[in-house]
Write a protein that binds this DNA or RNA. Sequence first.
DNA 1: ATGTTGACCTTGG
DNA 2: CCCAAGGCCAACA
Length: 107
Amino acid sequence: MTPEEYVEAVLTLVESIPEGRVMSYGAIADALAERSGRNSPRQVGTIMARHGGGVPWHRVVNSAGRLPPGHEREARARLLSEGVPLRGDRVRIDEAGWTPDGERTGE
DNA sequence: ATGTTGACCTTGG
DNA sequence: CCCAAGGCCAACA
């Protein structure tokens, strides 16, 4: 799988995240691990930073539910309007966490 | 080829 | 809450 295809795969997956739900960089990397041959949350983060402008990037947070640096205000507002459960400025990923299988990350 | 860096993750002080 | 260490993968100097 070429780098461009991996980028597309990531963006497509992010677009598939339902409103009110979120996914962590690690979960995304993990979900594409089989198909991409690589598993690196950092790469997903880099991809989001560079090509995340066209997708619901605010639905992607780190494992601790932390919002993307520099976009915290924006992300928080959007998540709030979607009804994503927040604890302060962090997402309750145990409740809003989502995977392509429709299961919650916690559990 | 080596070293650093990055919207990361987990474990452990 | 903050920091460090070891893994992870790709881009860049």
